[in-house]
């Protein structure tokens, strides 16, 4: 098991390095110059040259890459051209927001998806199953940003049930340092998390329905019922445990989806997370922010996948045996 974990960690590091390297060269190869953001039209050629020198962009690309890796090894992610602050600081500000958004979305995704999937499997081919199946398909087909705009218009602008964006009320709760402000944070989190979580939940429900249907037809489930166990116990203890195995894989797969979906949701809801930071940085050719965001995002995805593998190994003894 330890050897397996070591191998997986080593592979993870290699994947992150590959992502960072690819991002570094792709963003440098992208046409368009940094230091010419939209709001600034009259930067002089002399200033441009000086800024390029200041940030080391006058060196050859391999030189810049080696320098970047050397700094990275020392824990330095460079300086943002646009934000005029260390990239690490910008990422540290953005990361918690994306983390909480992804966590909340994940909770909605799996709680709702699991419940719906089980309900549909148990009432296979009933009216409820058919209706929920179609609703799930409809929601799953929606582009995230469109669902975000619909929820924003409906629940924020028209009904005023939720705020229109941002992580907190800037007047009453500039900092989350009290219980009312913590509740305000969750209130602000609801719509972005719902947007991201509902689309995922629709997919999870379909997946879980299929897994559950397969399991409840197994002989051991029939045996459990024949033994006279209550239906709830049969489903939740005997059937669900085995139906959850593919679900764990889904946890690992959900991470990349949540992080890419967050890019759009964060834009719609002005949620100051990694997605918004990365989009702005790409548009402004803020090289080190883009590379830093790719580093952190790939690390989160790899970590998510690693955790899913570990959970899978814990849940399924066959994997543990093979791994050992």
């Amino acid at each position: 098991m330890i050897a397996w974990v070591v191998r997986r960690v080593a592979a993870s590091v290699a994947i992150i390095w590959a992502v960072v390297t690819l991002t570094f060269f792709v963003i440098h190869a992208a046409r368009g110059s940094p230091f010419l953001p939209e709001q600034s039209q009259s930067v002089s050629p002399e200033t441009l040259d000086r800024l390029r020198r200041q940030f080391g962009l006058d060196r050859s690309l391999p030189e810049q890459y080696v320098l970047y890796l050397r700094n990275l090894a020392r824990g330095e992610l460079g300086e943002s051209f646009v934000l005029r602050r260390p990239v690490a600081d910008a990422l540290a500000d953005a990361m918690p927001h994306t983390f909480f958004l992804a966590l909340a979305a994940l909770l909605i995704d799996f709680t709702a998806g699991l419940a719906l999937g089980i309900y549909q499997a148990v009432r296979e081919r009933s009216v409820g199953d058919v209706v929920l199946g179609n609703v799930a398909l409809f929601v799953n087909s929606m582009p995230t940003f469109w669902l975000g705009l619909v929820l924003l218009l409906g629940f924020a602008q028209w009904l005023h049930w939720f705020p229109t964006g941002g992580p907190s009320d800037p007047v009453l709760c500039p900092r989350v340092d009290s219980l009312p402000c913590l509740l305000d944070f969750f209130w602000h989190l609801t719509l972005p998390a719902l947007t991201l979580g509902l689309v995922g939940a629709a997919g999870t429900a379909r997946f879980q329905r299929a897994a559950m249907l397969e399991v409840i037809r197994q002989e051991y489930v029939r045996t459990a019922r024949a033994k006279g166990l209550r239906e709830g116990r049969v489903l939740l203890v005997h059937a669900l445990r085995n139906a959850l195995l593919p679900f764990i894989t889904l946890v690992g797969l959900a991470f990349p989806f949540l992080l890419t979906g967050a890019v759009l949701v964060e834009t719609v809801y002005s949620w100051p997370g990694m997605g918004l930071l990365a989009v702005r940085a790409i548009l402004q050719r803020d090289y080190y922010v883009v590379t830093g965001a790719a580093l952190v995002t790939s690390a989160m995805v790899v970590l998510g996948s690693l955790m899913a593998d570990l959970l899978y190994a814990v849940a399924d003894p066959r994997i543990r045996v093979r791994g050992a």
Binding site: L153, T164, G165, T267, S270, R280
Partner: peptide, 12 residues
């Protein structure tokens, strides 16, 4: 209060 999109600013 910063927002990345003009339409979202109007909604706010």
């Amino acid at each position: 209060r910063f927002t990345p999109d003009q339409q979202v600013a109007v909604i706010q």
